[in-house]
Amino acid sequence: MGYQITSGVVPKPQKVLLYGPEGIGKSSLAARFPSPLFIDTEGGSAHLDVRRLPSPSSWSMLLDEVAWVRDFPAECGGTLVVDTADWAESLCQEHVCARAGKSGIEDFGYGKGYVYVKEEFGKLLNLLSECCERGLNVCVTAHAQIVKFEQPDEMGAYDRWELKLARKHTAPMLKEWADAVLFLNYRSIVVKDENGKCKAQNGKDRVMYTTHAATWDAKNRWGLPDELPLDWSYIAPHVPVPSFSAAASVTQAEIEAARDMPVPFDGADVAMEGGDNRGVGEPYAEEPVPPRAPEHLRKLAGMLAEAGIGRQEFVVAVARRTGYVTEGTPFESIAPDLAAWAETVVPQIKQYIDAGMPAEGK
């Protein structure tokens, strides 16, 4: 029996954990994922214009809602958001205690209660993984807390940020489950007082930490820098848009209206002129990208020209399908990382344009 060998990057739905202190913007960032559907366990999404299921009043209700999304992924659209994991854990603890007739998790003794919670919480993560297998991204948010941490082989202790979950049970399981763990916080600034002592102060800039450090946990498989501004655009190229996502509902008429949009380069040295003068069914004609334009733009422009797609036409299609850029974003403003992602979806964009942007199921 032979086996087929494959190679290259395999795009797949992402499991992302966003955690940070209260009010940092976890829910707002989760709302930027493709076509999000919230399961709001604490009511933190009330200020957001998002779709949501009823807030679960019990652990069983939470599992039922996730199972429904798993069975009807197109109803979700693109991303299932569980906001937040620590409130979900509270529902889980209540369930475990009620089932055993205990008044609190500590009544089990010897830490057994937390073991039971871990086993039960694993059911939620299994369901969320099944949602990913059905084509959905999953984003879980969680609060962070400062705890005293002691290295077992060193003297002294220090403070570090950790998930506001059971430290030895649900927290490590959730971090292991996720493809990316992003810690959101304000950038700390170290200042000296009049006595020469150093003190840490939180600045106003919100940032994402993407890799592990002594004072927080984080990871990613996307090759992100250690620290980034808290901005969706840095995550967007690495989170796929499911084919049944509502973000993919761009109409042919809207694309046609965008074909006459000017696409000048910013700067006299790299000016780009020309627009769309084609008739129906004719190839898209544009002036070549100037040699002095960045390499990633020239490469992407070449791919679009071969596919018969206008540069600004492509921008508009991506904007309305993903939200990674706006419709008026100039082609020359596309960043290298976004261009690298865009190169992988040229065939899909071409199919949607040629098919007249059909509605789902038609």
Rank of each mutant, 00 (worst) to 15 (best):
I189R: 14
I334R: 01
P225E: 07
A271E: 12
Y234L: 04
D266A: 15
V191M: 08
Y3W: 14
K192T: 08
P54I: 04
S45E: 01
Y3T: 13
Y324G: 09
V10A: 11
F244P: 02
K164A: 07
S129L: 08
Y234V: 04
S58R: 11
Q145W: 05
S27I: 02
L62W: 02
G77Y: 00
G361E: 05
E286T: 09
A171N: 07
V140L: 01
A339F: 06
S45Q: 02
D86C: 12
D260E: 13
P283A: 12
T41C: 13
E42M: 02
Q4M: 13
E176R: 12
E194C: 03
L127R: 06
Q351T: 15
G101W: 09
E162P: 04
Q348G: 13
E282T: 09
H143P: 04
T329N: 06
S55I: 03
P291D: 15
W222G: 01
Y19C: 05
P288T: 06
Q252V: 02
E254W: 04
I105V: 14
K168E: 14
A257V: 10
E287S: 15
A178F: 06
R167D: 12
E295P: 03
R206Y: 08
A144N: 03
D107I: 08
W232N: 08
A85S: 10
A236R: 04
W177F: 13
P330Y: 14
G113L: 01
A200L: 08
H212L: 09
E162C: 12
L17C: 06
M173C: 04
V250P: 00
A305G: 11
E65M: 14
G308C: 06
F265M: 11
E133Y: 09
G135K: 03
A200T: 15
Y186M: 13
V190D: 06
H143E: 07
P242I: 00
L128A: 10
Y158N: 08
H47A: 12
V82Q: 00
P54R: 06
G77D: 01
R187Y: 05
R51W: 11
S90P: 00
T329D: 11
D40V: 08
K204I: 03
A74N: 02
G135D: 06
L230V: 03
R187Q: 15
G109T: 08
S249E: 14
L228Q: 07
K112D: 14
T210M: 05
D205V: 10
R99L: 07
R311K: 15
V263D: 14
A293Y: 04
G274M: 13
